[in-house]
Design a protein around this nucleic acid. Structure first.
Lengths: 155, 155
DNA sequence: ACTGAAACCGGTACACC
DNA sequence: GGTGTACCGGTTTCAGT
């Protein structure tokens, strides 16, 4: 299932997830190849969905003021249909940049980015609290971002 | 502090964080401009650090088996120097893809990606537990990834 | 699957407004 | 800060192995 990638493909992925602007010639040199096979492999990785997309990673501290908050949410009853309803709604909130179903003390973990504390209050009050079937909601405010990798730890 | 970006710059950032391969001509058409100013603005955004880097976003489900775990860690005593020591060590662990200092019930929130439960056990035992000054550690295992945006919610 | 060369097209530089 | 043109270099294609 994960095996139609060889070491060369993995090496290419690792280079591109760290710098997608690396030119084919440079990659080829690192792998002891020429441009063409590198190019063809990248195309295959794109077409078969190993590479989801290419993105510019923005330095959000420089672009605009914002705060990051983690929200831990428990539902009152964990019926499958209710979870789906909940997730579909949450998914549409642009403030929610990450959303996971987790096991443990609570059911969902959300990473929320908003302009300021006031915006978070509004978000929590008008969007989260109005969702159906909500039990407990806890929040953890980010004081400092120590690490925030986009790259998946390959190898 | 955040104001040396105009609406055109923001529009360019928004396009590039969703698809960094969008060619200058296309961006120019959307903004009613020509290639040159778009090109110059992008260069400025790169040089001044608004764009941190360009990355290929990998579909990790397809590439290899892995699990994601959130770890919530409290220190025994919150002395500044001890927090720095802790963070410097945690930062070096490749399994830790995100690390935040938070306010609330615990001090740090870590997002960890490992191959499987066994690898998480090893990570927790050999790396987390051996850090100095650790109080409580709780874990929440990700059962389903509902949303995982890389793009910062601009506008 | 990889090499090497040729064609194509987007990024880059520049002269001018 | 913008346009239009021209050049250069990386991507893309292809014939050959």
């Amino acid at each position: 299932m994960y095996s139609d990638l060889d070491d060369t493909d993995r090496a290419i992925l690792k280079i591109l997830e760290n710098d997608s602007k690396t030119i084919a010639k440079t990659i080829a040199e690192q792998l002891g190849l020429t441009k063409t096979p590198v190019y063809e492999r990248i195309k295959r990785l794109e077409q078969e969905g190993f590479i989801k997309k290419y993105a510019a990673i923005i330095n959000k501290e420089k672009v605009e003021s914002s705060i990051t908050v983690f929200s831990f949410i428990s539902l009152e009853v964990q019926k499958g249909a209710m979870m789906d309803d909940f997730l579909e709604l949450v998914n549409q909130f642009p403030e929610v940049v990450e959303c996971f179903v987790v096991g443990g003390e609570f059911d969902f973990l959300l990473k929320v980015i908003v302009k300021n504390l006031d915006a978070y209050y509004t978000f929590a009050k008008t969007k989260i609290a109005s969702l159906p079937n909500i039990g407990a909601v806890k929040s953890a405010f980010v004081l400092k971002e120590v690490k925030d990798e986009i790259a998946f730890p390959l190898l």
